[in-house]
Write a protein that binds this DNA or RNA. Structure first.
Length: 805
RNA sequence: GCCUGGAUGGCGGAAUAGGUAGACGCAAGGGACUUAAAAUCCCUUAUCCGUAAGGGUGUGCGGGUUCAAAUCCCGCUCCAGGUACCA
């Protein structure tokens, strides 16, 4: 009987499920290992071949670590709040909970068909009140720490999605989901003070084993810059002043004008009568612009003079104050001192409006462009002759002494806009009293569940669907006072901010997790998922984790010790897989036709985990052939263990290859090099296929080596070989270094760096011995003819290179 | 523009304390088995010249260091991802 994955795979999946093979408990006698997948949003489309790539990788590591004696936490869950179920509800009236349940069931079925070694007793679902009860509890901890506040300001409003979005969710002025335009709209919204953690979020990146690109992205997003704040007085209005932030305080003598953001509160106070109309018109024009207009179309600088002047604190000169939208209210102080000679943006603005450009770096030419490099200062009073860095120090000291400024650090990171105008999300556990006071709910009363409704449509004005349900919104406090619930809900990120903690203690109904479980399992040792979460999810959860750490709820500063981004699996034509391109591969079809083991192995064999690579059905068939060959090493056509499996020892060559294979596969697994580990297994199988007799013990070892990759096939062969229980906890094979030694080695001989012949030499042979052998080679003799040997380079047991003249 | 990766046969990819480039797989070609096909097994396969023996050329491009460079250094080109008036 040939290898029939359709028969053995369901059998072993059932076996694992019934015996709870992968159930884990805290075991202080064993070292722990926590392997985590980025849990999926269970969409209606079902699983994509991209999902199993990361899941297979963590599963292989989990299975390997178990065999290495680790107590492995590996679990799966559902990030199930989110837009699609809600959009579907709007269209059909089906409650999102119903849609979610159907999708979750489908995802679970698909994932289970792939044979992952999850502890299914730990399955979680962010939309389960038993789960989001604790999401709400964490929010109360954040609220209690004063890190949540309501803010009345322009926010990113997406009319198409009818919700606000965080800065991180707006990409190029469009929504991250769907790519719809985003505009600014003033609204009162909950904000989380992630900026209070900017420094820690930046600092603690250092100790993490993460891809450089992700660390860089987070660094850029946090965007720390060091400079100074400088105070400017408004001429003729001594009670009015403003503060600018600059990274180049050394250029203060070169400032020729100042610019305020159009939204700056001072603008209305300083706009002169004759400029008033122009200022108001400009402000209105800016307010109407979308984010996209402000960035993309802003190649040309625009702005308006306010009619007022500021006093340069160091020269006493008059500087005209302008407003321009190249100065953003959201960054720094919303005001700048313009130094057109040494800042390209200021230079362009000065050129556009005929403002003076002053050079303060000796020898610099500022007629064609701003000079932004280092140099010696000139025209700068007491800073003359200094280089940029010392000049910064000196001017900051001067400003501080004069009370006209101070050293300052600024971050690009903004506070996290945390509310959404949605139905399908965690309600805020807060009550708003009529006097404006906000009361947190008593944690004992959680979860706060959303009301049942059939109208899921948010109003176009930005009110959430919950606002239509007065019987839910309006409550009476114990003292008889009326209060209102918040009609907004939390963003989808809330649930995924802490799910890795819940996995450590998923059934706990007394706490979000027990200290004991958290202390034993955390941090996550290996976290694998897509690169699209580089800033969003990974920054948000690091922030929550740090808050929880400071409150003593968790024991580690960082949640995810090692992070790996799996690459994308492209369609067979090399393009991104999508329905419209018609190149989508459905894992269900692959499992049906070739089996889960083939799919798992193929996805790992395609190339390095981190790289994007195109799907190839014939490549998958090649892997399937390999598994068939593997099967036939053990079983004959009648499905019997081959009689050629013997107790007799294998030849030394075969034995050496086996030990090499154990070594290579082990090392490759530690380094997540699954593709080369599989190659080595293929080499071993190819070699054994040619053998008449095979040593049974060795073949048992080989089954164990294959088992993390193709667990169903391995379990089946293991039991056929006499195993009475799962191989999941069998010790991982060891290799014997003494078996790897060869007494002879073949080395290349080069003449003038060109490969001319190979020599088989005794291991550790001396240069003289090797030269002697080389002289016996006909090919080398031919090379030596008529030439003189000038130099011999011999790297023991590696290479011989002869230099001739 | 800036930041981070990357570029190796017809294809996916191996090989980096510098030391036989192309492991393994796919595709292609040839052969065995078969009435035939599928499946399986064996062989060939970087490229050019040559019947062969053998030789030349080759890791995006141009230089350099070295006995020896896919690997190190300098200067480019192109591709992917991220980011974008952040003062």
């Amino acid at each position: 009987m040939p290898y029939q994955p359709g028969k053995i795979e369901p059998k072993w999946q059932q076996h694992w499920e019934q015996n709870k093979t992968f159930k884990v408990e805290i075991d202080p006698n064993k070292p722990k290992y926590y392997a985590l997948d980025m849990f999926p949003y269970p969409s209606g489309q079902g699983l994509h071949v991209g999902h199993p790539e990361g899941y297979t990788a963590t599963d292989i590591v989990s299975r390997y670590k178990r065999m290495k004696g680790f107590n492995v936490l590996h679990a799966m869950g559902w990030d199930a709040f989110g837009l699609p179920a809600e959009q579907y509800a709007i269209q059909t009236g089906t409650h999102p909970a119903v849609t979610t349940q159907v999708n979750v069931d489908n995802f679970r079925r698909q994932i289970k068909a792939l044979g992952f070694s999850y502890d299914w007793d730990r399955e979680i679902n962010t939309t389960d009140p038993k789960y989001y009860r604790w999401t709400q509890w964490i929010f109360l901890q954040i609220f209690g720490a004063g890190l949540a506040y309501e803010h009345d300001a322009p926010v990113n409003w997406c009319p198409e999605l009818r919700t606000v979005l965080s800065n991180e969710e707006v990409i190029d002025g469009k929504s991250e989901r769907g790519g719809y335009p985003v505009v600014r709209k003033p609204m009162r919204q909950w904000m989380l003070k992630i900026t209070a953690y900017a420094e820690k979020l930046l600092e603690d990146l250092e100790g993490l084993d993460w891809p450089v690109s992700v660390k860089e992205m987070q660094k850029h997003w946090i965007g720390r810059s060091i400079g100074a704040e400088v105070h400017f007085e408004v001429w003729g209005k001594p009670d009015l002043s403003f503060v600018v932030f600059t990274t180049r305080p050394d250029t203060l003598f070169g400032a020729t004008y100042a610019v305020l953001a159009p939204e700056h509160p001072l603008v209305e106070q300083i706009a002169s009568e004759d400029q008033w109309q122009a200022v108001v018109a400009y402000k209105e024009a800016c307010a109407a612009k979308s984010d996209l207009d402000r960035t993309d179309l802003a190649k040309k600088k625009t702005g308006v003079f306010t009619g007022s002047y500021a006093k340069n604190p160091v020269t006493g000169e008059n500087l005209p104050i302008w407003i321009a939208d190249y100065v953003l209210m959201g960054y720094g102080t919303g005001a700048i001192m313009a130094v057109p000679g040494h800042d390209q943006r200021d230079w362009e603005f000065a050129k556009a409006f005929g403002l003076p450009i002053k050079n303060i770096i000796a020898g610099a030419d500022v007629t064609a462009a701003a000079h932004t490099e280092d140099g010696e200062l000139c025209n700068s009073g007491f800073l003359n002759g200094l280089k940029v860095e010392p000049a910064k120090e000196k001017i900051i000291a001067w400003l501080e002494a004069q009370g006209k400024g101070k050293r300052s650090i600024n971050y690009k990171l903004r506070d996290w806009l945390f509310s959404r105008q949605r139905y399908w999300g965690e309600p805020f556990p807060l009550l708003h009293k009529e006097d404006g006071q906000v009361l947190p709910m008593d944690p004992k009363d959680l979860p706060l569940t959303p009301p049942l409704t059939e109208n899921f449509l948010p109003s176009p004005t930005g009110e959430s669907p919950l606002a239509n349900l007065p019987e839910w919104i309006n409550v009476t406090l114990p003292d008889g006072q009326p209060a209102k619930r918040s009609s907004n809900t939390m963003p989808q990120w809330a649930g995924s901010c802490w799910y890795y903690l819940r996995f450590t203690d998923p059934q706990n109904d007394q706490a979000a997790w027990s200290k004991e479980a958290e202390k034993y399992w955390m941090p996550v040792d290996l976290y694998i998922g897509g690169a699209e979460h580089a800033v969003l999810h990974l920054l948000y959860s690091r922030f929550w984790h740090k808050v929880l750490y400071e409150q003593g709820h968790v024991s580690t500063k960082e949640p995810f010790q090692k992070l790996v981004n799996q690459g994308m699996i492209l369609g067979e034509n090399g393009e991104k897989m999508s329905k419209s391109r018609g190149n989508v591969i459905n894992p269900d079809d692959i499992v049906k036709e070739y089996g889960a083991d083939s799919l798992r192995l193929y996805e790992m064999f395609m190339g390095p985990l981190e790289k994007s690579k195109p799907w190839s059905t014939s490549g998958l068939e090649g892997i399937n052939r390999f598994l068939n060959r593997f099967w036939r090493l053990y079983l004959d056509d009648q499905d019997q263990i081959l009689t050629t499996l013997t107790e007799a020892p294998a030849s030394t060559e075969i034995e050496r290859l086996y030990h090499e294979t154990v070594k290579k596969v082990t090392e490759d697994l530690e380094a997540l090099r699954f593709n080369t580990a599989i190659s080595q297994l293929m080499i071993m199988v190819n070699e054994l296929t040619g053998q008449q007799e095979r040593n049974q013990a060795m073949l048992q070892g080989l089954v164990l080596l294959l088992s993390p990759f193709a667990p169903h096939l391995a379990e089946e062969l293991w039991s056929r070989l006499g195993g009475t229980r799962t191989l999941a906890y069998e010790p991982w094979p060891d290799f014997d270094p003494s078996k790897l030694k060869q007494d002879q080695v073949t080395i290349p001989v080069q003449v003038l760096g060109k490969h001319r012949d190979n020599l088989t030499i005794p291991l550790g042979a001396s240069e003289a011995q090797v030269m002697e052998l080389a002289r016996q080679s006909e090919k080398i003799q031919k090379q030596l003819e008529g030439r003189t040997l000038v130099k011999v380079i011999y790297v023991p047991d590696r290479i011989l290179n002869l230099i001739l003249k």
